[in-house]
């Protein structure tokens, strides 16, 4: 009974109803598209931010600046302590003279530095810890800070961890937003289908009188909801794509200023498919709820 040709007929019916009032249909699709593109677009940005954080905090380092009056003896003692520490992978010593040379080479401030009557930089150890867990890193830093002769222990990627925490927070915010807007999408479809059922009232009544099953009557409405949801999803996808295209150049300029080659990743194929399937499902669900609610009100007389 559910042959391919009848399925095609149902899809034709559903599309036909969409084009009865094309303007209203387009507005609906646009509203759904915008509602979906907000959380989906934010999700794309967040995913990029996460990638950036991972890149930056991938190899955390702790810088250990020694007191200015540290003697070679205390430096040697500290080095031994660090080498023996089980949470430390490797230790690199940067003497104050090396540091000053590097600074003058990299910044081109040779004249200024030559003019200094004494070296303002301290001796330093750069430590690569074994862990990359934010809490353990913080504990390690506190421990190193207590070593005698250490002026300052600084976790280099601390800001990256703060960003990571923020990204996590934003993730939940996006989820809340997505849930709310999904409900909105269901409501839009619910209402569209309700209006359709009202206008199709005669057809539904006659069809019931001449032996139509509920499934037969329900089907075009469900297809309509699903197709409208899918088209809304496609609209959202296009909105995100064009927005990212707009952001691309300014972001490249910005990232160049920070000597990074960070580029925005667009929606992956998997994410695109999820977006389209999700919008299709939401449209179908809205239609289903509406049909379940309103169809029983039209009883054959």
């Amino acid at each position: 009974m559910n042959t391919l040709s009848t399925q095609q007929g149902v899809i034709r019916t559903a599309l036909g109803r969409m084009f009865v009032s094309p303007m209203a249909g387009i507005v609906n699709i646009l509203v759904i598209g915008i509602a979906l593109s907000l959380p989906a677009g934010m999700y794309v940005l967040l995913k990029n931010a996460q990638g950036l954080v991972a890149q930056l905090s991938g190899s955390p380092q702790i810088s250990l600046f020694l007191a200015m009056d540290a003697t070679p003896y205390s430096e040697e003692q500290i080095r031994r302590q660090l080498n023996d520490h089980q949470n430390i992978k490797s230790v690199e010593f940067i003497s104050r003279t090396d540091a000053l040379n590097t600074l003058s080479e990299e910044t081109g401030l040779t004249d200024v530095i030559a003019g200094l009557d004494k070296n303002p930089l301290p001796d330093a150890f750069v430590i690569s810890p074994r862990t990359s867990n934010a809490k353990q890193l913080d504990e390690l830093r506190n421990e190193l800070q207590k070593i005698q002769g250490v002026e300052l222990a600084q976790l280099d990627s601390a800001w990256a961890y703060k960003l990571e925490a923020f990204v996590e927070f934003a993730h939940i915010a996006v989820l809340v937003l997505a849930s709310l807007l999904s409900l909105g999408l269901i409501a839009i479809t619910f209402n569209t289908i309700r209006l359709q059922i009202v206008t199709q009232r005669d057809e539904i009544q006659v069809a019931k009188l001449i032996g139509a099953t509920d499934a037969f009557i329900r089907r075009p409405f469900l297809y309509f909801g699903a197709i409208q949801g899918l088209l809304g999803g496609i609209a959202a996808w296009l909105i995100i794509l064009s927005s990212l295209q707009l952001l691309k150049q300014p972001l490249a300029n910005l990232s160049q200023l920070y000597a990074s080659n960070f580029a925005l990743e667009p929606l992956s194929a998997g994410d695109s498919a999820s977006l389209l399937l999700f919008s299709l499902y939401l449209g179908w669900l809205g239609a289903w709820l509406s049909v379940a609610r309103h169809l029983s009100l039209i009883e054959s007389r």
Partner: peptide, 27 residues
């Protein structure tokens, strides 16, 4: 029916087609 219950959103052919669509006949 006394009041015919015809559907005015489609032509004569499609009105008669409806019962066959309901029963799932090939076009």
């Amino acid at each position: 029916f006394q009041d015919h219950k015809l559907l005015f959103d489609r032509n004569v052919f499609d009105n008669v087609l409806l019962p066959l669509q309901i029963c799932g006949f090939e076009y």
